[in-house]
């Protein structure tokens, strides 16, 4: 597969994987730690969405599905499919516990991307594409426009019934 097309496809798949899992696991509902609360409120003050801001704050403050997806891909690239993904899931879970997080989102993200990488390897998408793709996917959430990204994340949270009740 062409490298650029592969990276673009991997970025889209990784984005959907981590946003769906993180939203489903309730990241936009409430900040897990004080830092996530501060980020959420700062994003809202700048014209963004509070639930989306909490989402962004939570993925900064502990390894959620975004980190799980990235580390799962790195594990598969460095160690192999599926061992690398399984080892990444265990390490992400330990990281979650150290960051005061129950660890469901991160672990699910690492395991789901391992399954996705194993399945898409049949059509030529290799783990390296997912490593680059996931970096691009996180960039769209954290690196381009916090406010616009938070509004989109807020809309997804509303659709999935995970919008914050905090104001």
């Amino acid at each position: 597969m062409n490298e650029l097309i592969g990276i673009a496809a991997a970025a889209v798949i990784s984005w959907i994987n981590f946003v769906i899992i993180d939203t489903w696991m309730g990241l936009p509902e409430s900040p897990g730690v004080k830092g996530a609360d501060a980020i959420g409120r700062s994003v809202k003050k700048r014209g963004g969405d509070l639930a989306g801001g909490f989402f962004q704050g939570n993925i900064v403050c502990s390894p959620d599905a975004s980190a799980g997806t990235l580390l799962g891909a790195v594990g598969c690239y460095a160690i192999g499919i599926p061992e690398g993904g399984f080892i990444a899931a265990l390490l992400v879970y330990i990281g979650n516990r150290l960051c005061a997080d129950p660890g469901y989102a991160g672990t699910t993200g690492a395991l789901s991307i391992t399954i996705i990488i194993a399945l898409t390897s049949f059509i030529g998408l290799n783990p390296a594409y997912y490593v680059v793709g996931m970096v691009i996917a996180i960039l769209t959430i954290q690196g381009i426009s916090h406010t616009q990204a938070s509004i989109l994340l807020g809309k997804i949270a509303k659709k999935m019934g995970r919008y914050t009740k905090i104001c």
Binding site: G84, F86, A89, P102, Y104, T107
Partner: peptide
């Protein structure tokens, strides 16, 4: 998603999976 209870499926199975991968590799 808000529970801290340790159970047989989570995290026990995840720990077993991760340790197996490390040992087998």
């Amino acid at each position: 998603r808000d529970s801290w209870t340790l159970s047989a499926v989570f995290p026990t199975a995840i720990i077993a999976l991760g340790l197996s991968a490390i040992i087998f590799k």
